[in-house]
Amino acid sequence: MPSYYDLAKDLAGAGNEVTLFLVQNGVIPARAGAKAPGLSALAEAGVEVLADEFSLRERAISANRLASGIRAAPLDVVVDQLADGRKAMWH
């Protein structure tokens, strides 16, 4: 499990509003049936887990075939959150 999953979980556990935005190959574990229980666990821990619509389509992952707790979203969400002053880290 990538180390930033833990970071996201720790931040959410400390009461922060946390979004994990999956983009490029980061969306591959978002497909329903993928062996990536960490992602759904993050959602259960209060992290908003979003997957870039374009990256999903590029990899033939249907937006209605995502693992539990993960939603497809446009990349605009990242710009929204940057504009809102959210701390953003690229992994």
Binding site: Q24, N25, F54, L75, D76, V79, L82
Partner: peptide, 19 residues
């Protein structure tokens, strides 16, 4: 890398908003 393209996509969204 795909990162360059994603960076361009983010910039595109921001400049379209007049940022």
């Amino acid at each position: 890398s795909g990162r360059s393209t994603t960076a361009f996509r983010l910039i595109d969204i921001a400049v379209k908003r007049g940022y």
